[in-house]
Amino acid sequence: MKKLFLYFVLFCGMLGTVKAQTNTIENVIIVTTDGFRWQEVYKGMDSAIASDARFNQQDSTGIFKKYWVPTPQERRKKLMPFLWTTLAEEGQLYGNRDLQSNVNNANPYWFSYPGYSEIFTGFVDTAINTNAYPPNPNTNLLEFLNKQKAFKGRVAAFGAWNAFDRILNEKRAGFPVICGKDSCGGSHTDVEQQLINKMKHDEYSPFGDEEQLDVFTHYAALDYLKKQTPKALYISYGETDEWAHHGHYKDYLDAANRVDKWISEIWNYIQTNPHYKDKTLLLVTVDHGRGLNEQWTSHNNKIPNSNEIWFAVMGPNMTPAGEMSNTPQLYQKQLAQTIAQILGFTFTAEHPVAVGFKELLVR
């Protein structure tokens, strides 16, 4: 009887192991927070910038009170608690150059349109050398996924910046891209969508008509996630870049802190919904880096360090390795194929697609 009981326990354990190994990633949530530096991600607030009267919005005391603690590990956790608890415990973070984990733009320009194009096409098109570039001629990953049987009609993108219509070439790609002040909900809006649309229309935007505040992008995307259950969803937050360009360090940090809170909200929903739970990849990254010290407000190929980026990723079957060190040199253009591979596809297009690095993430 004891032997039978032992065999039963071993058999159940084997079933549990098989079940754990057969969890597959069927969905993907991609989040970007525009131009947010790796320095704040890995070290927290920069005391030199926070102390500089040119950048602290006359509230150095408030910045220190909210975000300062003695060690970089404590500071980064104060700034981005979800990233440094849940994601660091369950996933992997790349791009801390102090630990020899280097991630870079491959494009030679180091600003937004080329960066987002590189993320999603897996390709550097040197003709894309301005943020005013017309609709992207290159096939993107979301467009590719939307052509796959399981993903058809279940792909969407939300962005604060109105350029995403062009970056993702909405007309050709065939999936909804709700960006800038675009209304959400289509032609049959419910009460929540009507309220979101009214607020988007009536909001005061410090960035002009080209970009709305992130709060409207977030709640429009979250509403879509809950009601439409997309299999591939992209959300782009923009305030980290906008406030940096304004030289507002307090607003820049607050924007990053809000993004962290919203990612937590998205992930908590994912992990309580049977459609997504233990079947979803989360990738968080940026389109470009920024300069150092007084040059932190800007970025381009004339400002050193603007090509230094980072990313964080977690999902089932992914090694929970936390902060990575001594990794191979990685490039932004490799993300598209890596995501495709994790979802079980090979991303092909009319242009070359950079090789992925799935083997680094899933072991």
Rank of each mutant, 00 (worst) to 15 (best):
F5E: 09
V9Y: 06
L10H: 07
F11Q: 10
M14S: 15
V18H: 11
A20P: 12
N27D: 01
N27M: 00
I29D: 08
V31D: 01
T33G: 00
Q39S: 09
Q39V: 05
V41G: 01
K43A: 14
G44Y: 00
S47E: 12
S47H: 04
S47Y: 09
S47D: 10
A48M: 10
I49D: 08
I49S: 04
S51F: 06
F55S: 05
Q57Y: 13
V69A: 12
P70Q: 14
T71Q: 01
K78G: 03
K78C: 00
L79T: 10
M80Y: 06
L87G: 07
G91D: 14
G95E: 00
D98R: 04
S101Q: 05
N102E: 13
V103E: 03
N105V: 07
P114L: 06
Y116A: 13
T121E: 08
T130C: 08
P137L: 07
N140Q: 01
L145E: 00
A163M: 12
K171A: 04
R172H: 10
V177F: 09
G180R: 06
C184D: 06
G186F: 07
T189G: 09
K200A: 02
D202F: 03
P206G: 02
D214T: 02
V215N: 01
K226L: 06
T240W: 09
E242D: 03
D251Q: 13
D251I: 01
I266Q: 08
N301S: 13
I303K: 05
E308L: 03
M318I: 15
M324W: 13
N326R: 06
P328A: 09
K333Y: 02
A340M: 02
E350Q: 14
P352C: 12
E359T: 06
L361Q: 05
V362L: 15
